[in-house]
Design a protein around this nucleic acid. Structure first.
Lengths: 367, 367
DNA sequence: CTGAAAGCGCTAACAT
DNA sequence: ATGTTAGCGCTTTCAG
């Protein structure tokens, strides 16, 4: 069925040039005349020649392969992967995905990448211990994205400033007049400690140290749901909640609905990641954008730098951006002024100020 | 930094055997004594030898690489990928993921897989034209999952019976006493035509041909939301809706809430895929399970069969399963009797009969 | 059971 | 600008 694929030799014969020259042409290396290039490419096209990637990688050790380790079914990772593809577009880089998921550990996912002789490995929101990263970094350049890693590990780090992001959320809520602001954290997720600290310190800075309230959460809607029920147990509940991510925040919204609390008038909710989910909840979520583009670009930059000439590990920290939407809009006077760079992505509503959650079938309304 | 990785030759020297013998041991091929195997593996472990996958692939043409083309951020695909990993566990198979997403077409994703000399390619819910598939199939075995493909394309097909699934949903709803049953379809998604037909024919079979009502939908919550608003425009709205997938069904739930219609008493909703989402909506969704395990196993089976000895393309059709939950439970007398094989997956509630949506903070409740 | 030798398809020196 | 020639690390005959 599969008629032997043509090799470089075939191409050489068919075009009448030597193998070496043809090779030069195929990888756009200097050392061939324009005329020759044209002719060779033409014949290549004709006989359907495709360079054999395995042989190329074997010989040159420049496979151009960059391994990307991510958690499938983690929305934030999906978006990140998308932007990594975009950031690597046009470059001699080939992304190889390796997913970790229930039943396939991150360690396993990373190892298969190494097996494939990737030139560098990108770890998205990794929860690998630093020692494991350090071990990998001995073999190939490693770039950890969206997660803090100690210098000793010797891996490049590209992350957005989670500490600052959480603080921005608190500032925003305080400005809206909130005092009882709670935080549903991300448990062992990458970035969780930073956001916890950012939240706590900001509260203290506003003289709200006594109001600090952190409950365990996670990245699932059910985490936000459960945590919210906990928050509204005995004692006065919060008037505002900063959730670890948008999914979690969606869970808060659900729980609020069940508890008969209106968002945002009874409870303001802030998510994190500014993912698509932030726009598809019943009440569009105020959220912190980690600016995927910046993260992705920085990541690819580091990868390129390291595979070109391995240097010392560097940390790149990008600034998150607060995107205000309805879930915190009504709490005080200010309502408009959406910072959003993506509002209305879904085509209908979502932008501007819709009358009130629940009464305007403008758009979304997940829930 | 990267201290030259040991090669087979190194292993041979270190263990005192010949390269060939060591090779035999490393790939568990017949032709070496137990004692030798033990010794070689020991030394391999010691010097940290890892077979070079590129060289192996180059030489043997049995890279063991299976390309998987999927849509990142498509929950159904994520689950499928997970099960593919599980189904291939322990086999000499290595899954290579290639995602398609906004900005990276499925065609591109597939081509990179071919470039990598995968031995076979698995297409999840592909929307590629049959000609494109046929072209690929000329190069390597192709298995299309969860999508119908004409015989002429020469690709193996593994799908669940969407036609039957949609019909089962209708049967269930009719049994519950519903008459005005609408279908929000999947537009150009894989499987959409089959589900449309299954719905329509089942309606006709029940003498409900005049009640057939199909509106355009999709796989996003916003699709379900918009479609529902459309359904409840002028004229009598439906009392039951079969959505294309669970996400879409979640959108129906949102819209129902906005329109003040209780689920399931005013409106019964059936999703599709029985994804995690089906459990995290405020009202747990009755849904059709495509039985990932079966699909994944069949897929890996076909792949193995085709790379071992390429034979004629085959179509494997698995039976979907109706999983009844609250979103259709209250409509008639019967309420319990959950078929679910996963109810309560989230640990709390979800199974059995909870009092009524909205009043029981038992579990989920998204939205 | 073991070892020697011939490449897989390509790139990178080195000639011409 | 073009051609020649070694291998990359491994598998695979084919002899011992």
């Amino acid at each position: 069925m599969a008629g032997k694929r043509p090799t470089l030799v075939d191409l050489a014969q068919a075009s009448g040039f030597s193998v070496a020259l043809v090779s030069i042409v195929m990888r756009d290396a200097p050392g061939a005349s324009e005329e020759t290039r044209r002719r060779v490419k033409e014949v290549a096209e004709q006989i359907g020649y495709q360079p054999n990637w395995l042989a190329r990688g074997l010989r040159s050790a420049n496979s151009g392969l960059i391994g990307v380790c991510f958690a499938i079914s983690h929305p934030f990772h999906a978006d990140l992967v998308r932007h990594l593809y975009q950031a690597s577009f046009g470059k001699p880089i080939d992304l190889v995905l390796s997913a970790h998921l229930p039943g396939r550990s991150e360690e396993t996912a990373a190892v298969t990448l190494l097996d494939k002789r990737c030139e560098a490995v990108v770890l998205l929101g990794s929860t690998l211990p630093e020692e494991a990263m350090a071990a990998m970094a001995k073999q190939v350049p490693v770039v950890a994205v969206a997660r803090r890693v100690g210098e000793a590990a010797g891996v490049d780090v590209v992350r957005s400033d989670d500490y600052a992001g959480a603080a921005m959320a608190v500032d925003h809520l305080v400005e809206l007049g909130h005092v009882r602001i709670a935080h549903i954290d991300g448990a062992s997720q990458a970035g969780a400690p930073e956001r916890r600290d950012g939240y706590r310190d900001a509260m203290v800075r506003h003289g709200l140290g006594d109001e600090v309230r952190i409950v365990g959460g996670g990245i699932e809607e059910s985490d936000g749901y459960g945590a919210t029920l906990e928050l509204f147990g005995p004692g006065p509940g919060p008037t505002a909640v900063l959730a670890f991510n948008d999914e979690c925040a969606a869970g808060v919204l659900s729980a609020a609905a069940v508890l008969g609390r209106d968002v945002p008038s009874d409870l303001a909710v802030v998510g994190y990641d500014d993912s698509r989910r932030a726009l598809t909840t019943r009440v569009p979520l105020t959220s912190l954008a980690q600016t995927y583009e910046a993260l992705a670009k920085a990541t690819i930059d580091r990868v390129e730098a390291q595979i070109t000439e391995r240097g010392p590990a560097i940390e790149v920290v990008t600034e998150p951006q607060l995107v205000v939407r309805e879930s915190t809009a009504g709490s005080a006077s200010k309502a408009g002024g959406l910072t959003s760079g993506r509002g209305g992505r879904l085509g209908r509503g979502g932008r501007g100020r819709s009358s009130r959650s629940g009464s305007d079938p403008g758009f979304p309304g997940v829930c």
